[in-house]
Amino acid sequence: MTIIVAGDKKEYAEGTTLAALIEKENIDSPQYVTVSLNDDFVESGAFADTVLKDGDNIEFLYFMGGGA
């Protein structure tokens, strides 16, 4: 299936969960990353149970605290 990960089209096996995607994509400190799937946020507790489907759009939103 084809999914869109942070703007890029990628091929993943059917049945891939959000937790598996996060591992494959080497997301740093995933517990501090906000994930949006299509037009909703996904709670970190639901990553393992969220099965991705063809055409899904996943974004990772990272904390960035600097400014000075």
Binding site: Y32, T34, F41, G66, G67, A68
Partner: peptide, 16 residues
């Protein structure tokens, strides 16, 4: 809405 709570102290690096 995006980042519900600050990360734990020192979990995320700062510019400093």
């Amino acid at each position: 809405c995006v980042f519900r709570e600050p990360p734990p102290p020192d979990a995320i690096p700062t510019c400093r």
